[in-house]
Design a binder for these strands. Structure first.
Length: 434
DNA sequence: AACACCCCCAACCGCTCCAGC
DNA sequence: TGCTGGAGCGGTTGGGGGTGT
């Protein structure tokens, strides 16, 4: 553990890399690939440890890196992703082609944090600063109370409720009637508990139920994961070749599917429109849905097409990540059309539209291409392609075999899902079943 | 011009996870 | 099943450049 063993062995260079070192490493990797990083420095004739070489390659030498300052769109995307993922820089970086986790981390620490604070938003919780301060005071009191409580009753469920309780008023100061604000409430919990945890809690609890539609409290799920609800309830609506078991098994990577699925659903609901209205411009932040999955037949042409497109063009991430993608379907289904209603109203609205959405999901799942066509008809094909590309890991293996192989990309993409796999594994361990 | 301070970012460090044995 | 080593991640550091005095 700790420092790499190779670093102890002999005097290895540290600090900044010289152009000569860069050239050696670059030449070696472009010629042979990196293979085992620990052997790279030796083979490349470098007095560095493998770890250092890896870092240099990833953060600086990699040919697909995008240099230069971050665009406004990229910054906004980072902020939004951070609101969902927290300091999971690699996950955030995975959504910003050409950017490294280190770069994003630095940007966040040096720039974005300040910007958020200037706008009166707490960079940790993404809630208004004033509220966070109040929340802290309240949390202190609450903690004292909980301490007293826990003295008398060591109940897990109590702590769960406390941890996951959501105040509809949480975002009140910045709610201007935009749908996204309302939805975002769903992802921010009290006590700085990361929304993903809440999401996982909810998802896991709902997953344990035999039937989503009957066992879950609609208000509960709606309140927290409206889109997930849409997904989940459509379990029954899936075509024969796309039932849930098929989704989970067709790639042989059930966990990827399992975890990616709700996550995409959760994130997509965040932001059809500006999140905090305080400074974020229009930003239809879109996580890619699992739309490539449902049918092998339809996903093959899409998949290969997108893959090729994305492989040849990954330079305009800022726009490709925004506002395109099939997820605008959500807007067309009413999610972006929340007008001036409040959170509760939005939830009710969504519940009312639930059946409609369900029908649309059905349609979508049965005929994703036509749905896609209608939802993205105004978009440039490249944009759509780029949006799809990070979903490629959801494409069945059979399709994958037909596509140009790019293990690095596949690995990167699988990281996103593995992140949730890890969490769910932890939950599994914690709950001892599932 | 010289110094102090600040900020950014490349790189390091310590850790976890995971695969192979 | 436990150990070991490699890969990767997130937090932190420190050097260098920019800016203010």
């Amino acid at each position: 553990m700790g420092r790499h063993s190779c670093c102890y062995k002999q005097k290895l260079r540290k600090g900044l890399w010289s152009p000569e070192e860069d050239e050696k490493l670059l030449r070696h990797i472009t010629k042979y690939g990196h293979g085992c990083w620990s052997s790279v420095p030796k083979q490349a004739g470098l007095q560095r440890c493998g770890k250092s070489c890896r870092l240099r390659w990833i953060n600086y030498l990699r040919p697909d890196l995008k240099r230069g300052t971050f665009s406004q769109e990229e910054e906004n995307l980072i902020i939004e992703l951070h609101a969902v993922l927290g300091n999971r820089w690699s996950q955030i970086a995975a959504q910003l082609p050409g950017r490294t986790d280190n770069e994003i981390k630095n940007l966040w620490n040096s720039c974005l944090k300040k910007k958020l604070r200037q706008k009166g938003i707490d960079p940790v919780t993404h809630k208004p600063l004033s509220e966070v301060e109040n929340g802290e005071k309240a949390a202190e009191v609450s903690n004292e109370l909980n301490l007293l409580k826990s003295e008398s009753s060591k109940s897990d469920s109590a702590s769960y409720e406390q941890r996951t309780s959501i105040s509809p008023k949480a975002y009140a100061p910045e709610m201007d009637g935009s749908c996204s604000s309302k939805i975002e409430i769903n992802f921010v919990t009290n006590n700085n508990c990361y929304n993903k945890d809440l999401f996982l809690d909810r998802f896991m609890s709902s997953s344990r139920q035999e039937s989503y539609t009957t066992s879950c409290q609609p208000s509960d799920l709606m309140g927290n994961f409206p889109i997930q609800m849409s997904y989940a309830t459509n379990d029954q609506c899936l075509p024969n070749d796309s039932n849930s078991s098929h989704w989970f098994s067709q790639t042989g990577r059930s966990f990827d599917m399992n975890t990616e699925f709700p996550f995409n659903a959760a994130v997509t609901s965040i932001n059809p429109t500006p999140t905090t209205n305080l400074f974020l411009p229009n930003n239809s932040f879109c996580y890619k849905p699992s739309l490539a999955v449902p049918s092998d037949n339809v996903s093959i042409p899409y998949g290969s097409h997108y893959w090729e497109a994305s492989a040849s063009n990954n330079s305009n991430s800022s726009t490709e990540l925004r506002s395109s993608s099939p997820l605008n379907i959500f807007s067309s289904w009413g999610l972006a059309d929340c007008g001036t209603s409040t959170t509760k109203e939005a939830q009710i609205h969504m519940m009312e539209n639930h059946n409609t959405e369900e029908a649309k999901w059905d349609e979508y799942l049965h005929n994703p291409i036509s749905m896609l066509a209608s939802s993205v008809q105004n978009q440039a094909p490249e944009s759509l392609c780029n949006d799809i590309k990070t979903s490629m890991h959801l494409v069945p293996d059979t399709l994958g075999a037909m596509l140009p192989h790019n293990h690095t990309k596949q690995q990167e993409q699988s990281q996103t899902s593995s992140f949730f796999s890890k969490d769910i594994q932890k939950l599994r361990a914690a709950f001892g079943h599932m």
